[in-house]
């Protein structure tokens, strides 16, 4: 009985080429290599394990169908990440339509809330170990609305420019800048609160 090919040392570009030719074993290797990253992006946006698993798997199915469209302009991981981001945004928009907005969320959308927040005078992350810093940032980000959290993720973690974020989120560059500004100000305020909690 012939052994299945071993793709463990094959480069991504070659695996993509094999997959584009219909080789599902090569595609499975790509899934295995990048599944954590794709799941992590879905989880950071959805903040829900079940949704993140479902959407990341849906992203892989979509990727298989659209593999012929992948021209190699970016890395395969970046291309995959864009697919999962778009799926998460679609899902978050659907969820938002079905739930009532809180007054705070409406204030956030209208803007101006950030101007009422006092400026944080001392660095709320100073002296923190990296693991603790990551934990606090993650905790604070769960308290942001999905629009503010997403802008922050796309700008800081995916290193996307304002224009690219506006395109992905289907909004103006001004809205992106405003959301990013609010997200940073709110994050500073939340991290300061966490610091005070720790000290008391």
């Amino acid at each position: 009985m012939p052994q299945p090919p071993d793709f463990t040392t094959t480069l991504d570009v070659q695996l993509v080429a094999f997959s584009q030719a219909g080789d599902m074993i090569a595609f499975e290797e790509l899934v295995a290599r990048h599944r954590d990253k794709i799941y992590a992006r879905a989880f950071s946006m959805m903040r829900n394990e079940e949704d993140a698993i479902d959407l990341s798997q849906e992203a892989w199915v979509k990727a298989w169908q659209r593999l012929k469209q992948f021209q190699g302009d970016s890395s395969f991981a970046t291309w995959m990440t864009r697919i999962v981001i778009n799926l998460c945004l679609d899902q978050l928009r659907r969820q938002k339509r079905t739930r009532a907005e809180s007054i705070e969320q409406l204030d956030e959308e209208l803007g101006g809330v950030e101007r009422q927040m006092p400026v944080v005078a001392s660095n709320p992350t100073e002296g923190l170990e990296r693991a603790e810093l990551r934990k606090r940032i993650d905790k604070a980000m769960t308290q942001l609305s999905y629009e503010h959290r997403t802008v922050l993720i796309l700008h800081e973690f995916e290193e996307m420019e304002y224009k690219q974020i506006a395109k992905v989120m289907n909004c103006s560059i001004g809205t992106v800048m405003s959301r990013l500004f609010y997200a940073r100000r709110r994050l500073a305020s939340l991290l300061q609160s966490l610091k005070k909690e720790q000290q008391s």
Partner: peptide, 12 residues
């Protein structure tokens, strides 16, 4: 603080 400090998440 945020740059490079994304929480590490593993697929369960």
């Amino acid at each position: 603080a945020v740059a490079g400090n994304e929480a590490e998440v593993k697929l369960p």
